[in-house]
């Protein structure tokens, strides 16, 4: 079992530290010669142009092999709208799993992400979308998510989603997030948030609570630029 032992040790080390993945080549429209400001540029064109550009981009090229947007599940937001993660293409996304009745970690995770957003200049902040996806497929209805939004005072920069058990498991697996429901219906879960680049690829993962979020903020800023 030498191989296994080696892998175990290696994996333990890997699992123990926050995983930073080098950000991929930056964002948005793939044609380098045209370099449109598009939907993720620091100086976006008019809203109409940006929207058209994003639509064009979304339909024009398939997702990359590393894009989480390959997961084509349908989610429902707290306003009851159907959402696919792929619709976020073109801008940096901060993605985390949570559950609305969480007593300890999730509010802290939210405040960590708020803290990260505050370190960004206003022009960048408005381009970042935070997406929280619930583990709690049974209890986190759109109404429960809406109540969480109100409780936490979350603005339009935050998207709160619920989905079915299999897509939630898939997403957790792709993010390397561990979770388990206990007898009281609470979830034990990894405290981690993930920065996705414009293509939906994992650019950075931040593990732990109340830590230094400056590295994550740098990656977000790099994705925009």
């Amino acid at each position: 079992m030498k191989t296994t032992t080696g892998i175990l040790i290696f994996s333990f080390l890997a699992a123990a530290s926050a995983q930073a993945v080098a950000p991929a080549t930056p964002p948005c429209c793939p044609a380098p010669e045209s370099k449109p400001a598009c939907c993720a540029g620091p100086k976006p064109a008019t809203a109409a142009t940006a929207a058209a550009c994003c639509e064009e981009l979304k339909s024009a090229t398939p997702f990359t092999g590393q894009s989480l947007y390959l997961l084509d599940a349908k989610w429902t937001d707290d306003a009851g709208r159907t959402v696919t993660l792929g619709s976020l293409r073109g801008r940096p996304v901060i993605l985390a799993l949570f559950f609305a009745s969480c007593e300890y970690a999730c509010p802290v995770l939210v405040s960590d992400i708020q803290r990260l957003r505050k370190t960004l200049p206003e022009s960048l902040r408005s381009q970042v979308q935070v997406v929280l996806v619930s583990f709690d497929v049974a209890r986190d209805t759109p109404a429960a998510l809406a109540a969480f939004r109100a409780r936490q005072g979350l603005d339009a920069g935050w998207t709160l989603l619920r989905g079915e058990a299999v897509p939630v498991q898939d997403l957790a697996m792709l993010l390397g997030v561990k979770y388990k429901q206990d007898a009281r219906g609470q979830f034990s879960h990894s405290n981690v948030f993930t920065v996705l680049n414009a293509e939906g690829e994992i650019a950075h993962q931040h593990a732990g609570l109340m830590g230094d979020v400056s590295e994550a903020a740098k990656v977000v800023a790099a994705v925009i630029k």
């Binding site: 123990a16 300890y104 999730c106 561990k178 990894s190 405290n191 593990a207 609570l209």
Partner: peptide, 18 residues
């Protein structure tokens, strides 16, 4: 967790509820 000293009482900041 990867931390042998933490295996019996998991790191609370890494795992909610753990």
């Amino acid at each position: 967790t990867g931390e042998s000293r933490a295996d019996s009482g998991l790191e609370r900041t890494l795992f909610c509820g753990a």
